[in-house]
Design a protein around this nucleic acid. Sequence first.
DNA 1: CGTTCGAATGGAACCGTTTCCCTTTTTCGC
DNA 2: GCGAAAAAGGGAAACGGTTCCATTCGAACG
Lengths: 344, 344
Amino acid sequence: MSGIEDVARAAGVSKATASRALTGHGYVAAATRERVARVAHEMGYVPSSSAASLATGRTRNIGVVMPYLNRWFFAEVLEGIQEVLLESGYDLTLYDAKPGTEGRRRVFDDFLARKRFDGLIAVGLEPDDHELERLVAIGRPVVSVVAIGDNAGVVRLDDEYAARRATTHLIELGHTKITFLGGVSVSSGPHVDRARLSGYQRTMTEAGLTVTHVRSEVSLPGGYAAAVDLLGDPARRPTALLATCDEVAIGAIIAARRLGIPVPSALSVVGIDNHEFAEMFSLTTLEQSPRSQGMHATQMLLGQLEDPTQVPQDVSIQARLIVRNSTAPPPGTASVTVGVGVTS
Amino acid sequence: MSGIEDVARAAGVSKATASRALTGHGYVAAATRERVARVAHEMGYVPSSSAASLATGRTRNIGVVMPYLNRWFFAEVLEGIQEVLLESGYDLTLYDAKPGTEGRRRVFDDFLARKRFDGLIAVGLEPDDHELERLVAIGRPVVSVVAIGDNAGVVRLDDEYAARRATTHLIELGHTKITFLGGVSVSSGPHVDRARLSGYQRTMTEAGLTVTHVRSEVSLPGGYAAAVDLLGDPARRPTALLATCDEVAIGAIIAARRLGIPVPSALSVVGIDNHEFAEMFSLTTLEQSPRSQGMHATQMLLGQLEDPTQVPQDVSIQARLIVRNSTAPPPGTASVTVGVGVTS
DNA sequence: CGTTCGAATGGAACCGTTTCCCTTTTTCGC
DNA sequence: GCGAAAAAGGGAAACGGTTCCATTCGAACG
């Protein structure tokens, strides 16, 4: 393995000059720079990142902490982050912090303390006080996607707005019996669900309609189970369902099909996410594009790294309504033609 | 930030002794070791990983390269890897290498060359010659989950066996018109699909049955589309479907439902994976447990790191048949009772 | 034409560990 | 009780970069 000293010797300059030539910092004659670069390339020289980190204090690595890897939302965010980092030449170190596990404790107490990164992206963490304390103790910029208690930069969907918009859509179609399906539970974390539920409740109340909330585990099978339960009882059955997320909504659609309830003619279903399966199930939904949330957060963090005076901003994204074929006027309504398409 | 020198001073020993006490290498009196550890803990000392890496040449970090993050199989493998690494105190650096992208080229040519890891896990990569060359040029141990051309350690499902077992299951139920649904296409990479197809073909041929293969994109919507096409034509319709993976199988089940073809009474469907949705759709399938494949690969790699003489082994996992309610004897057969349960 | 300033470069210190090598102390077998 | 070997610990040299500081040289400016 050849070091910078070998490159310097081969190029006939000092280590100092070679370093300047390769990093682009400080004065170096154009001809020299070019020669050093060529020699380095020919020798297949690759700088040691540990040595560079030790000398500069920067790692060119970003840490990402998330509670789940195998859920659609998180995987999409991760891909977005990865895409931007790849382009910027940063590495990405992943920390898995499942709520309530011993592993999570170690991530916060040991792994993160090692500071093997210049900045941190927290995705859908809902850190408790101790965890939050550890996070600030690290002394590196933090940006989060979805909630985090403190004043770090945050990129998130405006969940309340999304739920309001979805509810409004159903009301405009003529529905009055609209049930919210979802949980005060995990998934992207309780805060998300609370905000969505609250958006639904407010909109219903403002319209003078009755609020009905059915709990469901936040997952496809969870939505299925909850919907089977709810729809199986004709007395309780609403004409429309607002699900806390697409997975729950799709579970509900599958349940309705199995129960022989046609969607959307007898039952409208709307979700929030625009999950990759949404199109397949013709699901009307509010798009939240986690991928671009990840990209956004990353750009924000990188910006903060290169100019530390830059204040962390909060970005709130307004979901776009995508109308597909899972929503229609309630049964027994004078037919209203609803186009399939996208509106904001 | 306090360094080891501060700790040494506070504990009244030399840097050398402090280092030995903390790392556990070399002779240190028990009392001294304990004192140094206590002082270090009180001061909140955290060793600089760059400095340690520079000195030792080891990073305590593992690189993971995969082409997709948001597909079930890959996400599960990743979680398995993460779990083992977390326990062993290793960091995990993730590299996203989508086939045919500029990003992938950079991963191989730039990112991996930086060697910020002690070993590498390649998941479902099917590297071309140039990429393979780069991989060995790194000079670090590599373990792969699913195919990789060369002689690195490999952990993978025995795909051929899985397909044979699935086919046998259908034949035993009395089916003779069995169509393979799947693609020579991406997903976990072409090799996987070829092996599964081949297992199906051989078993059919051995049983004297006719092979029929319908291509499908390897995804849920892909399976749906292909099945709609196939099942829509009564002349071509088989009594059983073997899908290359569960996502395709589930797509097919959804298609069958929509076409009013009852599963399993009129059509049996079997998949391979035991995907998280399999249970919900009562899908009979062969379990491949990507999570434990990831764990397995990681343990293999770590073992190799601590004892470099250890030869990389190839591990081939035999899938377990899980019988649910998507398979039954073909229509018009004297009824055979099939228990729901697990067999090997 | 002397002074000043910027460009270009080299020497050496430094980043924070680990580890080699050497000295001193202890232990243990005979 | 002695010698050898093992245990304990210290000083200093790595590891491979970056960057401060000093030096030289040439050009621009008054």
